[in-house]
Design a protein around this nucleic acid. Sequence first.
DNA 1: ATCATATGTTAGTGTGCACTCACTTACAAG
DNA 2: CTTGTAAGTGAGTGCACACTAACATATGAT
Lengths: 199, 199
Amino acid sequence: MLRRKPAEDRKTEIVEALLDLADRIGPDRLTTNDIAREVGVTQAAIFRHFPTKAELWAEAGEVIAGRLTEAWQQALASERTPKGRLRALVAAQLKQIETTPALPTILHSRELNVENANLRDRFRGLLTVFQRLLAENLEGMVVDGSMTRHVQPEDAAVLLTSLVQGIAIRWSLGSRGFALQAEGRRLLDVQLEILACGE
Amino acid sequence: MLRRKPAEDRKTEIVEALLDLADRIGPDRLTTNDIAREVGVTQAAIFRHFPTKAELWAEAGEVIAGRLTEAWQQALASERTPKGRLRALVAAQLKQIETTPALPTILHSRELNVENANLRDRFRGLLTVFQRLLAENLEGMVVDGSMTRHVQPEDAAVLLTSLVQGIAIRWSLGSRGFALQAEGRRLLDVQLEILACGE
DNA sequence: ATCATATGTTAGTGTGCACTCACTTACAAG
DNA sequence: CTTGTAAGTGAGTGCACACTAACATATGAT
């Protein structure tokens, strides 16, 4: 028998394995056996730490929610201008996706959303918060003149979240053939440029 | 025993049921039993028409590819100006998504993409074609002055495909709480407006 | 009206799944 | 060094899955 670890460490390992495998084989194809093999324990051991697979997903959801929220807070605190905060928010989101590539798949997966209503609501709430943070800073940009008055901040926020999602999907399906963060920031600046013009 | 139908009709029914269920319960959760119940035959009957489940998905992929290609051709033929064609392309895409809501889920699902390599390549090719059609017409818009020279047509094409994807996802996860086509066209016009300015 | 056959059914098969239970042993506190 | 407990195992359970084989009959061509 191999090394035994305290429950908290093992739980973390299991959640990390889940996030990794969700990216490689898909959130729904993922079995407890896959996770166990990845962690290096038997399949039964998974259930020593999580009563059901659904509970395991719930825990993973909490981890994701925590990471995103913290990343957003740091982004907001790191810059003083609305435009700076906006760019920091998008950059933070791209960085989160790059370190946890399963994120878009999990957030938007109809699979998970169908059977785990709590998780779905949690994620939907998260995305709403992100959208609202973007819109608030876009309003600030209208005030300080770095964005046109001819576009509603809410509409611009939709354009920006779509941009992040679209790039993430293209990156994910295209076997990560380009640098996500660099490409994302470049296109964000293109979008911000045309949002600024005419004022 | 109920009505017997010619194989071709039944195959069509089965594919339609698959597309419908892919939307309701997810492309990967979908079982042959679900399909059979929806169609109104026994599960074994499915395999009378398709040798394997993978072949059934392949057929569904062909159907989707055909519909999209035809919709794009009609859109291109229906308008004379680059801007008109561009708007028709996006409108056609939104309409296809509205009539087959499983489309985004299927096109971007990592689930399917993992185990059916042919299908993945087929879909990736489709999306590339769409992107190229957009880029071509954006180039035309640069020439006729309806789009700024400061943005590369390829970049603008990425912004537009992201827009369609982003709205489709929001529509899909948000329980279809708004009119997809209307909202999509509205945001497209917002984006085209700011893409035009400064020239 | 007859009949070949294509479309269907019933009743399976083997496989992999989430999850359980009886049992073991590594580990740390006294 | 002893010992209680938490972390792990091995061997299962029942269930749902994709898929099959043997048999039945509705249907269309003659």
